[in-house]
Simulated scan of single mutants.
Amino acid sequence: MSEGSDESVQNGRAPFVVAHRGASAARPEHTLAAYELALEEGADGVECDVRLTRDGHLVCVHDRTVDRTSSGSGLVSELTLAELKDLDFGDGAPSGVLTLSELIGLVLDWRSRPTKLFIETKHPVRYGSLVESKVLAELQRFGIATPASAAHSRAVVMSFAATAVWRIRRAAPLLPTVLLGESSRYLGGGAATTVGATAVGPSVKTLREHPDLVDKAAAAGRATYCWTVDEPDDMQLCADLGVSWVATNHPGRAKAVLANS
C-alpha cells in the first residue's frame, strides 16, 4: 500500500458520493445554495475548483473568467474579491462569489455527519505554486491541514497538474491527493507514483473504456475518484468496479441509485 492511501479498499460498499460544484444540476454551481442542497441530499463529500483573485483570495470558480457563471465579465485573476462579491453568480445572493473559506466553514459546521471537501486547483495559472500554498494555509487556519491519517482527513486536494499534486504531497504528506486525468495510460502509468498521489481520477468516459484502471489503482494502494457521473448506469458501473468516490451533479440521485447497488 502506498503511504497515506485513502479508502483504496472499498470492502464491497457502494462508492461515496461527491457533489460536483455542489448540487449543480439543481442550483447554480459553486454557490452556497448548491452546497447546502448537496449536504441536505446526503452527499458524502463536496467538490470545488479554486482560483486566486488579484488581491490573493481563494474563490470557488471553475473557469478562468466569470463570464459564464456570473453577471460580470473578466479574468478571475484580474478581479479583486470585492469586485467579485459585487457580481451575481446565479443564486440571487448578495454575497456574490463563494470563497474557499466560506465553503470550508459550511462543511465543518455541518453537524449531521462528517463530510469531505475535495479541492481542485486549476493550472496553468499566472500565480503558479502560490495557489497550493494558499490552499494549505487556509486548511491550516481551519485546523485540517495535518490530519492524523489520510483516511480521517476532512480535505482532499486534486489537480490535473502533476506538479500541483507533488507540491501538496511534499508539504502535507498526510493530506490525501487525487491526480486527475483523461488518459488511461497517464493514470495507469507511473505519474501517480512519481508524485505520491493517493488516488487517481479518471473521467467516466475513460473508466467505461478502461475499467481495469480501478484494479490497477487498488493494486498500487490507490483509491479511484471518477468524474462526472450523472447517469444511473454509470453510477452502477462505478459500484460494480469498486470505485471509491463518484463526483456527480446529482448527489441526491446518486445516493438513491447507489443505495440499491
Rank of each mutant, 00 (worst) to 15 (best):
R21Y: 02
G74A: 08
I119Y: 07
T99L: 07
E41P: 02
V59W: 06
A19P: 02
D63P: 12
L81I: 14
A23P: 09
A43D: 03
D44W: 01
H123W: 14
H20F: 07
G56T: 02
K85W: 07
N11C: 14
T115F: 00
R113H: 12
E102P: 05
A43M: 05
H123R: 15
G92Y: 09
F118N: 13
H30F: 04
F16P: 01
T99H: 13
V66M: 10
R64C: 03
E41F: 01
A82F: 09
L81M: 11
G92W: 08
A34Y: 07
G72H: 12
E120I: 08
T80W: 12
S101H: 14
P94I: 02
A26L: 14
D49S: 06
V61P: 06
G74Y: 13
D55Q: 13
T69H: 04
A14R: 14
R68F: 08
D49A: 10
P114R: 13
C60D: 05
A25F: 11
G42F: 02
L81H: 13
W110E: 01
A33S: 14
V107K: 04
G96E: 08
L58I: 11
L87R: 13
A43V: 01
D109A: 15
L117A: 06
F89R: 09
I104F: 02
L84M: 13
S77G: 13
